[in-house]
Amino acid sequence: MVALYWVLVVAMLVGIVGAIVPGIPGTSLILAAIVIWGAVKGFSDITIALAVGVLVFLMSLGIDFLATYWGAKKAGASNWGQIGAFVGFVLGFLGFLPTLPIGGPLGPIIGIFFGPLVGAIVGEYLYRKDLMIAVKAGLGIVVGSIVGNLIQGVLAVIAVTVFIFTTFPTVMGG
């Protein structure tokens, strides 16, 4: 049981990283680990941790959307920029961005960070035909996403901390 607990805690730590870094499961991984522990040990022991995990998961979904939307609107981006950012994320993750000729394991990681920026700028440029506005809109989308990811990271740390705080004494026999 103790080994499973630590495996789930490690999975939750990966979830914290995933809440900040796009392309890695974040709060959904944390919630899944909490649910697995509840299925094994009984949900009555993790009521608070489960409630916090569900709340953090739902909040992270909303924050993901709202932060990107806020960043886009503050920078004057259109839907074209937002769609471009999504397409850039996918293409960057898959390593298809011609501006990122870096292969190997770093290609997708770099693509995750630069793909949305390049995609937002291209999408906005196609819509407005003004490079300066496109760059401003692209930066706004990326800044909004980064702020949202940082907030999600804080929420993920809170969820994991609550889980450990409420379960650690029983797991370690205290």
Rank of each mutant, 00 (worst) to 15 (best):
F65M: 07
F65S: 04
A67P: 03
A67Q: 02
T68K: 12
Y69A: 05
Y69K: 11
W70K: 13
W70C: 01
G71T: 12
A72N: 11
A72R: 11
A72Y: 08
K73D: 01
K73A: 07
A75G: 12
A75I: 12
A75C: 14
A75K: 12
A75W: 11
G76T: 10
G76S: 08
A77R: 02
N79H: 05
N79A: 09
N79M: 11
W80L: 02
W80K: 05
W80C: 07
G81M: 07
G81V: 09
Q82C: 14
Q82K: 15
I83V: 15
G84I: 10
A85N: 10
A85T: 10
A85C: 13
F86C: 04
V87C: 11
V87E: 10
G88S: 07
G88F: 06
F89P: 03
F89C: 11
F89H: 11
V90S: 01
V90C: 08
V90Q: 06
V90T: 13
L91N: 08
F93L: 14
G95L: 11
G95R: 09
G95S: 13
F96R: 09
L97Y: 13
L97W: 10
L97H: 12
L97P: 07
P98E: 15
T99S: 09
L100A: 10
L100I: 15
L100G: 08
L100T: 14
P101G: 15
P101I: 11
P101Q: 14
P101D: 14
P101N: 15
P101C: 11
I102K: 00
I102M: 03
I102H: 02
I102R: 00
G103M: 06
G104M: 02
G104R: 01
P105G: 06
L106H: 02
L106V: 04
G107D: 08
G107R: 01
G107W: 03
P108T: 14
P108F: 10
I110P: 01
I110R: 00
G111A: 06
I112M: 15
I112V: 15
F113R: 01
F113W: 01
F114D: 00
P116K: 02
P116I: 01
L117W: 08
L117I: 13
L117Y: 03
V118C: 02
A120F: 12
A120L: 07
A120Y: 11
V122M: 15
G123N: 08
G123V: 03
E124C: 09
E124F: 08
